[in-house]
Design a protein around this nucleic acid. Structure first.
Lengths: 353, 353
DNA sequence: ATGAAAGCGCTAACAC
DNA sequence: GTGTTAGCGCTTTCAT
């Protein structure tokens, strides 16, 4: 007696009910459902009418036992980054036009949760997975990719053979930022990156760190300890930023691996009397909506999130359709110029007294 | 030949394989899986060992055809509101301890998408649904609730009979905010709310609007056009806010239905030379992380998101376990005081010249 | 073009 | 305590 909603627990119609109602076989209904070859127009009409009348909807579970579930899973590292909605909307849109539904899992930055969600999505018989900035290493991904078509985003593993990847050209994007800061007269340029569990080479932030170091080298202004890795956790991150701002060798320019960090940095700086851009220039990454806010007005690298999402979705669709050779796409980023990285007023060195 | 990952397409082990490997019947394995009554310890150990050895994981689809999928679905209106991660983490946590996985759908504020996602989750055989601030009316919800256990959040429908609801006491929360503004000396108090598709009574923003009007009445400072409904869309919303800020009758205090709007408002105001709180006081709703940022320092109504999530998850679990009587919980909000609503310097009326 | 029937991987009666 | 077996709602040969 439990588990029955109180009113009208009328059982869901099945394919059998539809067949009976339409006066045809279940096989016929199934064919109509999948718009398979070999059904007359008359039969199709009858079946469609019955489906409509009964309010029939196929059970994804039963369906998945033999064929496709027409559902794909998207694994998001976390949910707070304002860049993600753009990518997600694009994925939903692209997959939707092919008749695929999108269900999402949130990893909350925890590797264990991430893996368990992927397994869960596989258990659900999903037809494919898009993983956004997964924390796990390539070996683990390859293992999952043997069980289900996978496309990863924001994760550099271009030699992967059993899954696809779509990425911003993080190397070039970082160079755009550093070049802009250098051109604005800055020489004391540092970077704010994020802490990772291990020093995982595939992380976008790590790639950006390397490109950053390389750029400074190129300008002959490289040195030690110019990358500040800060924790993702709100509270600790703020503390780290404040410490850096109050420190003795505050740089005149900062490149942030993500707008999420850059926007926060600007707020903290100003709250401590450090003007942006006058006292300190800032450039972010993602060109997410907050960057465009008047008081923020953050210069940022635009990854073109919608494009990334669309390409990833298309790749997954084609992989589900049978493609087996890996495909690794790089999207060119652009510099979205605003006021946060304006020229410094005085280029003469400020000698410490 | 399509659809086969290139390497080692080794088929997933089934319950039958486990049974064979352990030398027992499938029924025995099934019982161990569900920790059902009537299995000896020795048998359980053997089965567990085989499961481990084979890397077996039950198919959710097959499982759902007879019993539970141990998966619940969460429908989020949208993903940008910084209040949501708190609720979501709490839901995931609470359900996780009961062995339930959480899969998410994002409605993107579109009613059509919302409905299709709910249907999709039902089709997947999910055991229950938590809907966060759904746009659809009670009748539609009741219809879905006849098919699957449902708990709604941030949606006032306390007379609903076939689903549960968990809400902040929006009426009281709003009063906390208006009282604080009044106590700080403000008399020209207005509200920023959000545009809804229809004038849907169940919306939290609508409830807050009504409470707001009632509070002003109580103080004898009510009047016409004191609630500004603004679109959810970024661009249009900013335009509306700027127009209001530049208008002839800018109030000295504003209550925002959500921090999401309040934080943006503060930025826009300052960018136009309107100081907060000196020229204009602001109080938000949610007490989400951005409210605590130094330069924002937004006074806000704390809904206690984690508590809401936890109560909702618990309600769903109990409903899945068989409860059929509706349960409508109201959580008391608190005022989180910061500097954005400070006392006005001069309480004497500013006569227009 | 249509239908009958054999599974898909599980759960839950029921029999032993 | 353990095993046998009949479905669950679909898809997919294979007959007709």
């Amino acid at each position: 007696m439990p588990n029955k909603p109180s009113i009208a627990p009328r059982p869901r119609p099945t394919i059998k009910n539809v067949a009976a109602d339409a006066g045809v076989s279940v096989a016929a209904v199934s064919k109509v459902l999948r718009s398979a070859y070999g059904v007359s127009d008359g039969l199709r009409q009858k079946v469609l009418a019955s489906i409509e009348r009964l309010g029939y909807r196929p059970s994804t579970g039963a369906r998945g036992m033999r064929g496709n579930t027409f559902t794909i899973g998207v694994l998001l590292v976390e949910i707070a980054n304002p860049f993600l909605p753009l990518v997600l909307a694009s994925i939903t849109e692209t997959c939707g036009t092919e008749g695929y539904k999108v269900l999402i899992g949130i990893g909350q930055g925890e590797l264990k949760l991430e893996e368990s969600l992927i397994e869960s999505m596989i258990d659900h018989g999903m037809d494919g997975l898009i993983l956004v900035a997964p924390q796990m290493a390539g070996a683990a991904l390859e293992r999952f990719a043997r069980q289900i078509p996978i496309v990863v985003l924001g994760h550099h593993e271009s030699d992967a053979v059993s899954f696809d990847s779509v990425n911003s050209d993080d190397w070039a994007g970082t160079k755009l930022a550093v070049d802009a800061l250098y051109a604005a007269g800055h020489r004391a340029i540092e970077m704010i990156s994020m802490t990772t569990a291990e020093n995982t080479e595939f992380n976008v932030s790590v790639v950006r760190e390397k490109s950053f170091a390389s750029c400074l080298q190129g300008y002959g202004i490289g040195g030690a300890k110019q990358v500040h890795r800060m924790p993702y956790d709100n509270v600790h991150r703020q503390a780290a930023m404040l410490a850096m701002l109050a420190g003795p060798n505050r740089p005149t320019a900062l490149f942030c691996w993500s707008d999420l960090f850059a926007v926060e940095l600007i707020g903290l700086a100003r709250s401590r009397g450090v003007r942006v851009p006058e006292d300190m220039a800032v450039i972010g990454y993602d060109n997410s909506p907050p960057a465009a806010m008047p008081l923020i007005d953050l210069t940022s690298i635009d990854q073109n999130g919608p494009m990334i999402g669309q390409v990833a979705a298309a790749a997954l669709m084609s992989r589900i359709a049978g493609r087996t050779n890996a495909q690794h796409v790089i999207i060119k980023p652009t510099l979205s110029i605003r006021s946060s990285h304006a020229k410094i007023a005085d280029t003469s060195a400020d000698e410490p007294k």
